[in-house]
């Protein structure tokens, strides 16, 4: 092994890497951190030091997109900790905070009915995703923390590192590129490509990307939603099981909220806007009087449903489920102001 072999190898690597980075920047990809389990754990850890007036945001992707941290802080004077996570059932995070932390401030809990009322067990995708994030927080090693720390400067420099670590949702890694570029006859049922339509910062404050300005891109996202909600009737549980699940989730929530309130905490429920196919399904399968309203009533908590307030229902989510960032900023200002006015915060 001689020096020229090494230098040529390093030189070629550098050149190809520069081209790779420039290519993805020219495609418009932002420089942003990965929304991975390490970043989530960092924020989960931070709530241990918060006080009674602080706010933690829990929920699924709608809270992530619709609540903008700068705007929330400008109204309330407190920067909330964002612990909502896309594609998760947040009851796992609520349970974890109540049972495994000393936090006794305020929790804003976003309810996306199909996710929140999915069974809270590890064989269910939405709960498992949430629980895995929390498990990582509880089991992360010093090596994990160290790697997360030293990766930050790189993630602040390279756009090609912005992808998600999840295999079904990661555009820029070789595996996903193989799957997207090589189209072979389908042998097993597959999902449509899930394009990245957001990026976030180190506070996990999200900005919608592309789907808000490009209708074709938004359509790619709605194709994913269509596929996700396309459950054959025979795969659905029988009505009595659904009813039992509804009651179980409400009872579990009531128990957790009461336990949290007993140590001085407070939970505020929010139902963020949705539209088109999502709203249609959610209204039919999860009527608010049986689901959201029952949660609010039985816990005795503050509840904000988008259909009740003109400042919450005046928006049209570009891909049926999440607000674009300018709308989300205004939405946050208005909702936070209303919460303050009501004495909820």
């Amino acid at each position: 092994m001689n020096k020229k072999t090494v230098f040529l190898a390093l030189g070629l690597t550098l050149v190809t890497l520069i081209f790779w980075e420039l290519h993805w920047r020219s495609e418009g990809y932002p420089i942003a951190p990965e929304d991975d389990k390490h970043l989530y754990a960092e924020h989960r850890a931070s709530i241990e030091n918060l006080g009674k007036d602080d706010v933690v945001l829990l929920g699924s992707s709608r809270v992530l997109f619709d609540f903008q941290l700068d705007e929330f802080e400008s109204v309330t004077g407190r920067r909330p900790v964002m612990l909502a996570a896309a594609g998760t059932n947040p009851i796992a995070a609520l349970k974890d905070i109540v049972e495994n932390s000393s936090y006794s401030g305020k929790i804003i809990l976003g309810i996306t009915p199909p996710l929140y009322f999915s069974p809270p067990t590890m064989d269910q995708f939405f709960f498992r995703r949430a629980q895995k994030l929390l498990d990582h927080y509880h089991s992360r090693t010093w090596a994990d923390r160290w790697t997360h720390t030293v990766k930050k400067p790189l993630q602040n420099t390279f756009a090609f590192l912005c992808a998600s670590p999840e295999t079904f949702y990661n555009e820029l890694d070789p595996r996903t590129l193989l799957e997207w570029k090589i189209q072979l006859p389908a042998r097993v049922p597959g999902e449509p490509p899930f394009p990245m339509f957001q990026y976030l910062d180190w506070d996990r404050n999200i900005t919608m990307w592309r789907a808000d300005t490009d209708p074709e891109y938004a359509k790619m996202v709605t194709e994913v939603w269509k596929d996700a909600v396309n459950v054959p009737p025979e795969a659905l549980p029988p009505p009595e099981v659904i009813e039992e699940g509804r009651k179980g989730t409400i009872a579990m929530t009531v128990g957790l909220v009461k336990a949290f309130e007993e140590r001085g905490g407070q939970v505020i429920f929010v139902r963020c806007p949705s539209s088109d196919l999502f709203l249609d399904i959610e209204s039919k399968a999860f009527p608010r009087d049986m689901y959201f309203d029952q949660l609010v009533e039985q816990t005795g908590s503050f509840g904000y449903h988008f259909q009740d307030y003109s400042f919450m229902n005046k928006y049209t989510p570009p891909e049926w489920s999440h607000l674009n960032t300018p709308d989300a900023k205004q939405f946050t200002l208005d909702v936070a102001a209303q919460m303050l006015k009501d004495g909820a915060l």
Binding site: T5, A9, L12, T13, T16, L17, D36, P165, L172, P174
Partner: peptide, 14 residues
């Protein structure tokens, strides 16, 4: 060697 290094650097496995 360069191909291996390049693929390692862009492979975003967790």
């Amino acid at each position: 060697w360069a191909v291996m290094l390049f693929l390692l650097l862009i492979a975003q496995t967790p």
